[in-house]
Simulated assay, not measured.
Amino acid sequence: MPETYAPSARAALVQLMLEGRVIPNVELVKEFKIELGKDDRDALNDDGLLESSKEGRRLVHRITDKGIAWCINDLSEGEAPSRMGPLARVHAAVLRRVMRFLKERGLFGEAVRPADLEDLIRQVYLELGDGYQDWVRLAKIRPRLSAERGEVDETLLQMVKAGDTHLVASANQKVLTEEDHAAAIRIGGEDKHLMAIEES
């Protein structure tokens, strides 16, 4: 049995796992109707399931690998909230059975895979920039993507080949941070640090 948390905390973790990206707290509330209170947030952070941090004035959340593992166990072994109606309780029982089936066959990751990575990159790009054609640092984009670096690089290259995405080196190399160097993608023997997407 996984350790239990409040329903809102459990919901936040599962939503973050499904989205596969960093989610601002305001979006968690407005878009997903999940209010993650300070006590619940602190408990999840202290237990290593969640990483909450400030980006400017915004509080953002990212699920950890440990958090994903906890979600898998909770969905397959966790108890349903006590105040559920009969239909919701039966749905929870079906979910647990399906989850066990997926876990036993190693299919869980494929079943809950986040939205298409290219769509996710485009969404994060627009969230971080000032609209299409704005140059955004890869160092800001990469941390928002819950995907392996190789998979992200391959997707970026496919986007460039499609013609509406551009990757360039920073014109002023002196202002680059360690994060910029680490996030760069090497193309044609040159590190690219910035990305822009044209409006289709």
Rank of each mutant, 00 (worst) to 15 (best):
K103L: 03
S8M: 02
K66V: 06
R142T: 07
A43H: 04
A139P: 09
E190Y: 09
E179Y: 12
E190P: 13
D65G: 15
D74T: 06
K140T: 00
V90M: 08
K33F: 15
E151Q: 02
D39M: 05
L156R: 05
L18Y: 03
R58T: 05
K192Y: 10
L120M: 01
Q123G: 12
S8G: 10
A139C: 11
A115L: 11
L157I: 01
A184W: 04
V26F: 12
T64A: 10
A111I: 00
G85C: 15
A93M: 12
Q173V: 04
R186V: 14
G20H: 00
A184N: 02
A183K: 01
R100V: 03
V175M: 14
S146T: 02
A184D: 00
L194N: 00
E179R: 09
E79A: 15
R149A: 15
A184T: 00
A162C: 10
L157A: 03
E79P: 00
G150Y: 13
N25T: 09
N25W: 03
R100D: 04
R142G: 08
D119E: 04
T155I: 02
R62D: 06
K140H: 12
K192P: 10
G109Y: 13
Q158Y: 03
I121W: 00
M84D: 14
I23T: 10
E3Y: 09
W135C: 00
A171I: 03
E154M: 03
L59V: 07
T4C: 09
W70Y: 04
K174F: 08
R57H: 13
K140V: 11
A162E: 00
R41Y: 05
L95A: 11
E190L: 03
A92N: 04
V175N: 14
D74H: 15
